[in-house]
Amino acid sequence: MAAPRHHILSVLVENKAGVLARVSSLFARRGFNIYSLAVAPTDDDRFSRITIVVDVESTPLEQVTKQLFKLINVVKISELDPASAVEREMMILTVKAEPGTRGQVIELVDVFQGRIVDVGHDELTIELAGPPSKLDDFEDLMRAYGIVALQRTGRVALPKLERTAHGLPKSGMRPLGKVG
């Protein structure tokens, strides 16, 4: 058996009540844990885009994506290859920052190009956006100072652009849900 790996599914859905429940319950039915999920309207407010990250082998995932495509409110599904996708995530985190350590924390925020968005007596709340791995690193570093609260958004992703000979960008998304 192949080792499980991250899969990123980008699912374009009709912006209607209950759609998220329909999508997520297809994963739940098979006992697949959704690692992260982000959903928001697209530039066309009739549609929303759901970005789902799931740890599962390819074969059962293929069946789930086909089942997803059967949902009446699902318009399009693409699987993004992590190697050729731009992934971003945002995090806000409150960390202990007493007078003795506050300088170090602020320095790290600078290095990671984060922003301090709230200041308390001995705590700071920091906003950081970027590739998920960068957020992981920052989280690890902050742990030493004492993380009080942390919230991540789950990742959003778009395919990396390819440049053809004519210089026109071409989508690297692999459309799914269609066979033969």
């Binding site: 293929e62 069946q63 086909k66 849900g177 269609k178 066979v179 033969g180």
Partner: peptide
């Protein structure tokens, strides 16, 4: 389309 390959992978799938 979800039936094709669900149980047995076809040599010629036709939706």
């Amino acid at each position: 389309p979800a039936e094709l390959g669900k149980v047995r992978r076809p040599d010629v799938p036709i939706v």
